[in-house]
Amino acid sequence: MRPASGGTLPLEEREREYSPSSCIGGNYAPHLDEYAWRSAAARQGATRHLELSYGDGAAHRLDLFLPAPTHTGQPPPLLLFIHGGYWQELSRASSLFAAPDCTGAGAAFAAIDYTLAPQASVHDIALECRRALRWLHRHAKELGFDPQRIVVAGSSAGAHLAAMCCLRGWNGTTDLPNGVPAAAVLVSGIYDLQPLVGTSINEALSLDPAGALAVSPQLLCLEGFPPTVVCWGEIETSEFKRQGREFAKALKEVGAQHQPCLEAPGRNHFDVILDLARPGTRLGDATWALFSSLSFTPVRRT
């Protein structure tokens, strides 16, 4: 276990630093509205779209978008997206905005729901996300994508959950198959949850120091972590940037980092994720470079 990361701050400063909207004047509702309308457009414009269950729980649902079939017969890779919202809000319904970029490039895209806090603990939410990943791998061939080329991605709390999906042998839980996921894209994440203890964010999470440690990938064994892109927006708090830099450094130490960590110019905590699969953006190009390392060449649009 690696030592806790630095950056211990007084409570008032932690409240501000872990409030991502503090950098944009406090109102992030317009960004959530954009997630929603872009996702609705993605769903409406899809030609190959499925709604599926990965478990028995009410929140164990996912949306899957598939690209047009190709003449090669080779199944496409999958980008699996896990939404943020401090483990307490948002859903897959507003997390579909990257689907058109993925299917247009010849890749599949999925977004999952999970039980939100306080109805579920962060630990149990991580287990649900790992269950969804395991289910998608098991059913990949019948659904029409490559089980060995699943890239998991997430934003904010979703980046934390995506990182938890990459841990091997975590907490004695059922492990994921070898090579699953094949890679990860982590955007504006928190990888050490200890600074949240005592803040208002923790009211719904009920994390104590031991519980925060148990779900902090920064502080857990990262051996076997897949190739990873770590990114954040230029307009973010110093703590979100520090968390990203320190996690990227830890991944580099175990040989998992695909490239230097990225700061997306002009982007904030909420709009940087819109570039996830968008060609010509720093994050989007890094995502497709990661897919290229998995022997996938995105379709060029004319």
Rank of each mutant, 00 (worst) to 15 (best):
I190F: 12
E89V: 15
A163H: 02
V185C: 06
W232L: 00
A4D: 10
T47Q: 04
A117N: 08
E142R: 14
Q259I: 04
L186H: 09
E142H: 10
S216N: 08
A162H: 00
C166I: 08
A59R: 14
G233K: 00
E223I: 10
T173H: 00
P279C: 09
G154T: 08
S238G: 03
G158F: 11
E13A: 15
Q259A: 11
R48K: 02
G211A: 12
R2I: 14
A159P: 05
L9G: 04
E246S: 01
H160W: 05
F65S: 13
S206L: 15
L283G: 06
G172K: 01
Y191R: 12
A29I: 06
I150A: 01
F291Q: 15
E239G: 04
G244N: 14
Q194E: 07
V272W: 08
A256D: 02
W170I: 04
L96A: 14
A162I: 05
L207H: 10
G144Y: 11
A59L: 09
R134G: 04
S295I: 11
G55V: 00
H31T: 11
S91E: 04
G169S: 07
G84F: 06
R14C: 01
A132P: 04
R168M: 03
E234M: 00
A107G: 07
A68D: 12
T287E: 07
L96R: 15
S155H: 11
Y35T: 03
T228M: 01
F225D: 07
A36F: 06
A117S: 07
P3H: 01
P298I: 13
S21Q: 14
P30F: 06
P279D: 06
G169W: 00
A68R: 04
Q257W: 07
C165H: 06
V254C: 03
A264F: 03
G198K: 00
P69C: 13
F81V: 08
E239S: 13
E89P: 04
G6I: 08
M164S: 06
A132G: 03
P279T: 11
L62V: 04
E13V: 05
D101A: 14
T47C: 05
W288T: 04
R300W: 12
T8F: 08
T302V: 14
D271Y: 01
L50E: 07
L290Q: 11
P100R: 11
A250V: 10
H31I: 13
A68I: 02
Y191D: 05
F240I: 06
A132H: 02
V229T: 03
G211H: 09
F296L: 03
G26D: 11
R14Y: 07
Q218D: 00
A286K: 02
Q243H: 09
L79I: 15
Y28A: 11
S39G: 05
G158D: 13
G26W: 09
V122Y: 11
L294I: 14
W170H: 05
C261A: 10
S156H: 12
T174D: 14
S95D: 03
F247K: 15
L50C: 01
D192P: 06
V215N: 12
A93S: 06
T199W: 10
F296Q: 12
V215F: 02
W135T: 13
V299H: 10
P3I: 13
A99V: 15
A117C: 05
F240T: 02
A248V: 13
P10F: 03
F81R: 05
